[in-house]
Each structure stands twice: as C-alpha cells, then as structure tokens.
Design a protein around this nucleic acid. Structure first.
Length: 758
DNA sequence: AGCACGCCGACT
DNA sequence: GTCGGCGTGCTC
C-alpha cells in the first residue's frame, strides 16, 4: 500500500474500533502434505486453542487439521476461509508436544500436518469411546470338565469342544478371540458349550492392564545402591535442579541401570514433575511395567496394540496431570506428560528408536530436544552406547556416568573365538565347530542350558541349481529367497512374497536343487540331529509370531524344559535364565559383511548382548564365537568386552571416512516402477541439489545418484543420493530442496540421519 | 494427498 | 468437432 492510498483510507475509515469485531486467525497444520500451515478465520468466541483439532475447508473438500497458533485478525484477513468446526473440546496436544511435532516436521522434511500426525496416535485422534470385548469363562468345575473330557476323549465329534475346554482350563477367564485361536477351533463350538452350561460368554470392558489400580508405592522394596549407582543418582538428580542436562548412563549388563532411572524418576515426582521413559519395543514386558508401577505409582503404558479407548484414557490422564509417568516405545516420547522433568531412553543404541517411515525421526534426537525445551534431564542408558552417544560425550553435550560392576556380583562370562578358517566343521551342514560341539556336549551333560545364536531367519539363505547355476530370487525384489523348511516354502524377507520350493531346476530341469547358507531353522535341526536326546527349541521372528509364544518359550526355558535354544536377534535381548551357561554364536560375520557403515557397530553390540545371556546366575558362563574374521576389531573388542576400545577404533574409522557421528548425513531415495524414470528423476534431482547454495559453497556434498544396495524392493526400483555435511545446519538447509521434486512415477523419500543405507 | 485445470489423440 | 488421457500445480 503506498502513502497516498494509506492517507485516503485513514480519512474514510478510522483504523481503530471497526463496527464488527473481526474474527481471530488460526494457523492450521492440515492433514495433507502441504509444506506450510494455512490460515483460517475463527470466530472470537470459538473455543479452539493451539493443539485442538479442527475441520477446515481445503479446495473443494474438507480435511482435518491441528490448530498451531491463534491471533486476532485484521481487515486484511477477511478473505480467508473460516474453519468448519473444532473437533475437540480440549486440545489433544500440550504446547510442548505441539512444538515437538512441528520441529520434527521441519527437521525431517515432512509437512507440519504429517509431523503432528506422528505425535498423536491415530486411535486418540479418532476419539475412541470404550471398547467392549467378549470374554469366555469356565462355568463348570475342574472335576466336571475332567469328567467331560474323559467321557468324550475319543469321539471325533467333540474334539473341538474338548480342545476349547482344555484351553479354558488353563486360562481360566480370557478374551474369547484368544481362546479360540489358542484352541484352534471356530466360533460355532462356543454356542454348543454355552448351551450345555459348561462355559459362559460375557461382555467386559477391554482389559486395561490394571491402569486404574493404585499401587502401594510405600510397600515396594528399595534395593541398597552400590556406590556407583548412588553417584549416578546424585549427578543426574543435581541436574534436575539446575535446568536439566544430558547423560549417557554407560553400565554393563546387570549393573542396575533401571534402579538409577527409578531413583531419578522418584526425585522428579517429588518435585512435582513428570517422567517419560522409552524402552525398545521388545523390552515392554509385564515385568518391566510391574517394576515401574510398584515404585512410581500409576504409570501410563502406551503401546501400539492397545485399544483405542485405553490409549485415549491414558492420554487424558497424563494431560490432566492425574498420572505423571509415561512408559512406552519410541512414540511414548510424545506422551502429554505435564512439566516433564526426566526423559529416559533405555537401551539407547537400539535401532528401533529410529522411525522407519516419514517423518523418519530418531528418538535420541527428539528426546534431547524435548528435554531441552522443558528443562528436563535426559538419560541415555546402554551397556554399549551408540557412537552418537559417544560423540555427545566427546563434544561435551552429554556427561558420561559409568556403572562398571554387576549389582548382583555375578562374574562376566568367559568369551572365546573359534577361528572357522582352521576348523573342520561338524554335524549336518558343517555348522558347528569342534570346540562348540564339545562345549554343547559338556553343557548338556551337566544338565545346564545352551543358547545358539544366528542372526538369520529361516532354513537356508540360497536355493540354487548345481548344474546350471540358477538361483531362487524374488520376482519383486533384488534379493535371494529364503527357504523355510517348516512352512515348505521359499520366502522373500523383504516383500513377504512366497512360493513353493521347486522339485527340479526351473531353468535346466536338473533334479538336484541345493540349499546353501544356514538360518536358525537349520541350526536347530543340526543340533537336534547331533544330540537326539536334547530338547531343542527355536525362538525367532517365525516362532514368535503366535500370540503368547514368547511367554511360553520363556517359561519352558526357566522350567528347564528346553536344553538348547536356537534363535536370531530376538534372543540377544533380555533373556535372563540362570541355567544358561553356554552361548554359541554360530556365525558372527553375518552382520559384519553387510555393505553398510554401521555393520561393525551392529556386530559389536549384538555380540556383547548375546554374550551377556550366559552365566547370569551362580553358574559360570562361557561364550563361543564362530567367525571367519577373528582379527576384525569388532570381534576382538567384543571378545574382550571392551567397549571403550571399540568406540575409539570405530570413531577413528568414521572420522576418516566422514561418516556419522562425524559429519551429518541424509539420504534421498527415489523409487518407482520403471527404472528409466527413476534414473532420470534421480539425476535431475541430484543436479538441483548440487546447484543449491550450501553445496556450491562447499558446506555440503551430494553423492550419487547410485542404485541402492538393494536395487529393487516390492517391485520398485530404487536409487539414492547421499548428502553429507560437516554441520547439521547444512543438512537443514537442504531439507526443503531434498523433499520436493517427486512426480507421479517416481517417489522421493527423505531420510535424515539414516541408520542404514540399504 | 486430492482435485481442478489444461493441453493433445481416437471417437460419435 | 468433443470425450478423456494424465502431467502440473494449488490448496488459506
């Protein structure tokens, strides 16, 4: 507006007190990938403060969005469209969480609306009301059931009925769907049994894992702290009173890190502040929950397979300040805990703390951010801190607190390497070396238990023709299919496609198809063949798929009903069985050979974790690591259980190569059905990235495009560009460019601080 | 993400 | 001549 116009205007309409109050203006992050918030008018008396969901017009349709801010409007805002209606009476997001969601969106290259979607779980958004679940209960007495079973034992017609009764006898009262699944029977059986008066079906509010019960905190035993623990509690608590701080709690397995978290949390609660505690998905067990509840009182447990209503109630309780502690996996970071004083990230090095879909945030970085804005203490706990954590300590951004002795006084196991280059393999498939075979035999003879670890699912990793060299490959992905003998199929571990294994080579018709490269399934079979009297069980993604399987296997292990447990990744974490005295790593190299800059770190962590499964009780433990690379530093350091040396060595490698945590990186992935399109788009986009200011002045580099190590996934061709910079801010400058430029044939995915480059 | 607008091929 | 293909760009 120029001066003349302004003067005229002033003469006609006084600029204060117009006849009608203009509406307020709210900024809304809409549920669409729009890179900015949009402004809407909202009547002054309309209750929608920041954090409230609203329905707004967008083009020719209506969408949901979150109010991000609100201000009084002026005459120039009259042209804005008005919001349709608020969707909540109270805001769903606390200011701290709202801020966090917007920060995530900006940092990780997502639209504001997408950032906020990540911080509010869908069930809460839907505003769920109570869910009711049908439960089955046994009406008949135990004796009556036994009599019934005896009477009908051999009759085919009643087999399903008997199965259901047996299951119910074990479970007592349980959700009907679980009972049916466990018994392996259909719903028709239920009616018959209910009519006969043997069972009853009733509707109950869905189980809430005792959320409403108030535990008696005073009665909980409080263990005496070791000197190290006391020092850790004192240091972290001190920061609670001085505006916060970051700590790396570096404690060997069994050194009592959890007790430090609990004491610190108690201190926060005593000061009227809240606590957020993050654990890897797999650690969220009833035992963990119980331990926390016993000490900290009511704890809001948040996890993904919780009912809508249960989650909504937890959110409400936290937001209202009735419950002050939130516990859960990654997403629990966004629990609406009021005045958060402590954020704990337990097992900080775990890869599950990185979200694998947009916005691809890392819980470690978001936890730091939340702690900073709320003046909270953040504690990253681990026995094998990530190199990112090491770097934080090195740069003075976090303080290391050490716990070096095991709280229970148990000794660390003896660890040995078996050099497979010099070994004559034993047993079917040549999986076990002579030393491991003998160790197993001794362990079994002593009636102790053994754990065999192989980080590979399935029976064998390659299916090939001896004559012509044909290999079973996935039609949709650039990978070999894994043979699963149990399911008698070839399975793709990336897209899930499966097909029957061929009897003859589909190429040349030769009769002998060969299976090569062992998975856990084959190890279990080999052990069973070598030790026919041993009770062998398998624990991996496959056997754990059934509900309650983990608990069943764990119980069997504790009760001594399993002699040898064979497993993948999943057995590395958290198994605590005193009679396991031998851990065998069948092949330490599987994770070492991956074409990724984190493979050494992952291998080291994995080996340390499996090693920690052995000798947890009074009996001394030992660990045998089979490898073809006995001189690799990841293996040598794991052998010596020397994390500091590993970190030092690996940090040196990373520094030389400019990999994180020295320098920052981000990855832009291009994927599409047609590789020619993908190639063209990726090249054009890389060029655009290269022309940005940051890159031209040398503050960031663009590498690629190149095909991804796994060049095709689920039928889509994939190429990527890797962005590298010394400073985090340089990457930030590239985010807006890196996330734009996709088209209908080629999708662009952006991954900042990637955990892998596959 | 939707959805409209817009500019080139085979149809009544 | 127009119905419709989906490429491009905008949504307060």
């Amino acid at each position: 507006m120029n001066a003349t116009e302004s003067g005229l205007f002033d003469d006609v309409v006084p600029d204060a007190a117009p006849d009608v109050d203009p509406d307020d203006v709210v900024e809304v992050a809409v549920a669409a990938p729009i890179p900015t918030t949009l402004s809407y008018r909202a009547p002054r008396d309309l209750p929608c403060v920041p954090g409230t969901r609203v329905r707004v017009p967008l083009g020719s349709r209506e969408v949901e969005g979150f109010v991000v801010s609100r201000r009084p409007g002026g005459a120039e805002d009259a042209a804005l469209r008005a919001i349709v209606a608020p969707l909540d009476r109270k805001p769903l997001l606390t200011p701290a969480v709202l801020e966090l969601g917007l920060w995530i969106a900006e940092r990780y290259g997502a639209a504001p609306g997408e950032g906020l979607r990540a911080v509010v779980p869908a069930p809460v958004r839907r505003g769920a009301t109570g869910r009711v679940v049908k439960h089955a209960t046994l009406l008949a007495s135990k004796d009556e059931v036994s009599a019934y079973l005896l009477e009908n034992a051999d009759r085919a017609a009643t087999r399903a009925r008997c199965a259901l009764l047996k299951t119910l006898l074990q479970k007592g009262d349980a959700p009907l769907s679980d009972v049916l699944k466990d018994a392996g029977v259909g719903p028709s059986v239920v009616k018959t049994l209910a009519k006969a008066g043997l069972i009853s079906i009733r509707s109950v509010a869905e189980d809430d894992d005792g959320f409403d019960a108030t535990p008696n905190v005073a009665a909980a035993p409080r263990p005496i702290l070791t000197d190290e623990q006391r020092a850790a509690v004192e240091t972290t608590t001190a920061a609670l009173d001085t505006g916060g701080g970051a700590f790396v709690l570096h404690g060997v397995t069994g050194s009592g890190k959890t007790e430090v978290y609990l004491r610190l949390a108690e201190e926060a609660l005593a000061r009227g502040r809240g606590v957020v505690m993050l654990v890897p998905e797999i650690a969220l067990t009833p035992q963990t929950v119980e331990r926390l509840r016993a000490r900290l009182g009511n704890v809001a447990v948040l996890h993904s397979n919780q009912s809508d209503s249960a989650r909504a109630r937890r959110f409400e309780a936290l937001a209202e300040g009735r419950v002050r502690v939130a516990l859960g996996p990654r997403s629990a970071l966004f629990a609406p805990v009021r005045d958060c004083g402590v954020v704990v990230v337990d097992e900080e090095h775990e890869s599950t703390f990185k979200q694998q879909n947009a916005p691809r945030y890392h819980a470690r970085d978001v936890a730091l951010r939340r702690a900073k804005t709320e003046g909270a203490v953040v504690v990253f706990g681990s026995a094998t801190p990530s190199l990112e954590a090491e770097a934080m300590v090195e740069r003075g951004e976090a303080k290391r607190v050490r716990l070096t002795s095991r709280a229970g006084g148990a000794a660390m196991p003896e660890v040995r390497v078996v050099d497979m280059r010099r070994e004559k393999p034993t047993g079917p498939g040549g999986l076990l070396s002579t030393p491991l075979y003998h160790a197993l035999r001794e362990t079994l003879a002593r009636k102790e238990q053994a754990l065999l670890f192989l980080n590979r699912l399935g029976f064998s990793t390659q299916t090939l023709c001896k004559r012509c060299g044909w290999r079973a490959r996935c039609d949709l992905c650039d990978v070999d299919l894994t043979f699963h003998r149990g399911g008698a199929k070839l399975l793709c571990h990336y897209c899930g496609a499966d097909r029957p294994p061929p009897e003859k080579c589909p190429d040349c018709g030769a009769g002998d198809v060969k299976y090569r490269g062992a998975g856990a399934e084959k190890v279990a079979e080999a052990v069973a063949a070598l030790f026919p009297r041993a009770r062998v069980a398998r624990m991996d993604g496959e056997t754990l798929a059934a509900r309650g399987a983990a608990e069943r296997i764990y119980a069997a292990l504790k009760n001594g009903e399993i002699d040898v447990l064979v497993g993948t990744q999943v057995v590395a974490k958290g198994l605590d069985v005193p009679r396991i005295t031998l851990t065998g790593v069948v092949n330490a190299d599987t994770s070492l050979l991956l074409p990724d800059f984190r493979s050494a770190e992952r291998t080291f962590q994995l080996l340390c974790q499996v090693a920690g499964r052995s000798g947890r009780g009074a009996l001394p433990g030992r660990v045998l690591i089979q490898t073809y690379e006995p001189d690799h530093y990841a293996i040598r350091c794991a052998l010596a259980q020397d994390h500091d040396r590993f970190a030092e060595e690996e940090l040196r490698h990373r520094r030389v190569a400019g990999y994180p945590p020295y320098g920052r990186m981000a990855r832009v992935v291009y994927e599409g059905i047609d590789d020619v399109d993908v190639e063209r788009t990726s090249r054009a986009h890389a060029e655009v990235l290269s022309q940005t200011d940051v890159v031209r002045r040398g503050a960031a580099r663009v590498q690629g495009p190149a095909p991804c190590p796994i060049a095709r996934l689920s039928g889509k061709w994939r190429r990527h560009v890797v962005l590298r910079a010394e400073k985090d801010e340089a990457i930030s400058e590239l985010v807006p460019v890196a996330t734009r430029g996709g088209n209908s044939r080629v999708k662009i995915l952006f991954d900042r601080d990637p955990t892998a480059l596959l």
